[in-house]
Amino acid sequence: MQLVVGRVGRAHGIKGEVTVEVRTDEPELRLGPGAVLATEPAQAGPLRIETGRVHSGRLLLRFEGVRDRTGAEALRNVLLIAEVDPEELPEDPEEFYDHQLMDLDVVLADGTEVGRITEISHLPSQDLFIVERPDGSEVMIPFVEEIVTEIDLEEQRAVIDPPPGLIDDRAEIASSRDDDSGGDDASGKDGG
């Protein structure tokens, strides 16, 4: 099975290094020297990692055969894809590969069906589950511990505890102007 583990960014320097947007929780395993990666688009690869280092918080890689800035720039926005055994699990029991989460049923703690995970969107700040509801509409669920309370792979379900308004239109609206005194304005002083 193939997993996207990174995206090539800008060239760094003049000797063929590129910045890489890491899309794996195991970069030392997937993006280490000697790793051979498929690419999207396919004609850009396969690419073998020659060297890797972290510079100013960014991963820099050099691929075999890429020796100058021009070659590095030609790889910009190429997706890096690793071949992974479908039975392999992340070392941390609280981490999951995308393929494990796809098609899980999403339910509330009381068992109420919300929908099915059809896509996982990896954003810089957090991951999102794109959930298709029974009526065909979609809802985005942040994949954070406070909302996704349980992932049960045996039962093929994700249990969520969403805040008001996340999956329905019944948001609780709290306002500092809610006031039972009648004629007072928001500042608490008389209007006249």
Rank of each mutant, 00 (worst) to 15 (best):
Leu3Val: 05
Gly9Phe: 06
Ala11Thr: 05
His12Gln: 12
Ile14Asn: 10
Lys15Leu: 12
Val18Thr: 11
Asp25Asn: 06
Pro27Leu: 07
Pro33Ser: 15
Glu40Leu: 05
Pro41Gln: 00
Ala42Leu: 10
Gln43Glu: 11
Gln43Phe: 02
Arg48Ser: 13
Glu50Leu: 15
Gly52Cys: 09
Arg53Pro: 01
His55Phe: 02
His55Arg: 15
Arg58Val: 13
Leu59Ala: 10
Glu64Ser: 09
Gly65Val: 08
Arg69Thr: 09
Gly71Pro: 02
Ala72Tyr: 00
Glu73Cys: 00
Leu75Ser: 14
Leu75Val: 06
Leu79Asp: 12
Leu80Asn: 08
Leu80Glu: 08
Ile81Thr: 13
Ile81Leu: 15
Val84Gly: 01
Asp85Arg: 15
Asp85Ala: 13
Pro90Arg: 13
Tyr97Leu: 11
Asp98Asn: 06
Gln100Met: 11
Met102Thr: 00
Leu108Tyr: 06
Asp110Ile: 03
Asp110Cys: 03
Gly111Gln: 07
Thr118Ser: 10
His122Trp: 03
Leu123Glu: 02
Leu123Ser: 00
Ser125Asp: 09
Leu128Glu: 08
Phe129Met: 10
Val131Met: 04
Ser137Met: 10
Glu138Gly: 00
Val139Phe: 04
Met140Gly: 05
Ile141Gln: 06
Phe143Ile: 14
Glu145Ile: 01
Glu146Asn: 01
Glu154Gly: 14
Gln156Ser: 15
Val159Gln: 05
Pro163Gln: 03
Pro164His: 09
Ile167Trp: 03
Asp168His: 08
Ala171Asp: 09
Ala171Ser: 10
Ile173Thr: 14
Ala174Gly: 07
Arg177Leu: 05
Gly183Ala: 10
Asp184Arg: 14
Ala186Leu: 09
Gly188Asp: 08
Gly188Glu: 06
Gly192Lys: 11
